[in-house]
Nucleic acid binder design. Structure first.
Length: 277
DNA sequence: CTCCAGGGATGAT
DNA sequence: ATCATCCATGGA
């Protein structure tokens, strides 16, 4: 099956560090969208796919986001413009909430390559196997599946000290104490507060989950890469800029689609050599 | 080998 | 409120 996907770059969207389990296969990628094993391949302005409906594909890749308008809302400074040009077609996808939350709990102080490794280990060991084009795909284990495990079982997937946080958060979600789906109705600040009450979730992880799983396109996660971008591009030769000052600047400067701006700056910094360590 | 990574929790100033 | 330290692990 195929659908029209204008203004879209599949490779950048899957390899920009917002999602961690898609694997290259021939001219396309194989992975899971929720419980479905999926193959997806870009052919110019079309998306060729198997394993899910067109509706599921279009929704997951946010093909309805008005990307041109979003990019026009970015501030007009040199760094932002370079990132915008570098990331043309990159879309913020709609990830399943638990999968996104759990993955970013395991992401702290980890490189993207290792987050991928942890995600794949958890899937292979504790997820459910699916078949797509001869590939074995594994779904991300649900909170209900995680609570049946021990901290030691999780540590065998190289989670280290993050295992405890994932296990306790899974218990809160599985018990219904943390209502991930109902939180969809909350305004940004209330949603962030709820997320930050979960063990292993601070401001940065909460903002990632808000951006990648709750479609809060204003959420602006600040990690070590983005902090370097901010200090080098927006506060050059200025010492003693506090974390709070950076936060205030981002909320004010990048506007209603700050999350998109952030992801473009992040990907450009990592893959385009826009910043120095 | 060393350095550091899409940080968070905790305890001391 | 800000700051220092510790937490596991492995890619670069």
């Amino acid at each position: 099956m195929k659908i029209l996907a204008p203004d879209f770059d599949l490779e950048k969207t899957l390899n920009c560090g917002q999602v961690f389990h898609w694997e290259k296969s021939g001219a396309g990628f194989v992975g899971a969208i929720g419980a479905k094993g999926v193959y997806v391949e870009q052919q110019r302005d079309q998306l060729v796919f198997m394993g899910a409906t067109a509706k599921v594909i279009a929704n997951y890749f946010s093909l309805d986001h008005p990307l041109a308008g979003i990019c026009c809302s970015f501030p007009r400074d040199p760094g932002m413009t370079a990132a915008r040009d570098f990331c043309r077609g990159l879309r913020i996808i709609r990830q399943p909430r638990w999968e996104c939350l759990a993955t970013f709990i395991t992401s702290s102080m980890k490189q993207v390559a290792h987050i991928r490794q942890i995600s794949l280990a958890l899937r292979k060991r504790y997820g459910e196997s699916k078949q797509i084009l001869g590939h074995k795909i594994f779904t991300y284990p649900s909170a209900e599946q995680i609570v049946e495990l021990t901290e030691q079982g999780l540590r065998e997937c190289a989670l280290g000290y993050r295992a405890k946080n994932l296990l306790v958060t899974a218990r809160l979600v599985a018990s219904g104490e943390a209502k991930l789906e109902a939180w969809r109705e909350l305004p940004d600040d209330a949603l962030r507060e709820h997320l930050c009450e979960l063990p292993g979730v601070g401001a940065k992880v909460a903002n990632c989950v808000m951006l990648f799983a709750y479609e809060r396109l204003r959420a602006f996660p600040i990690d070590v890469w983005i902090e370097r971008v901010l200090r080098q591009q927006y506060f050059p030769r200025k010492r003693k800029v506090t974390a709070q000052q950076l936060r205030n600047f981002c909320d004010r400067y990048f506007g209603e689609h700050g999350g998109y701006a952030q992801q473009y700056l992040f990907h450009h910094a990592r893959k385009g050599g826009a910043v120095s360590k």
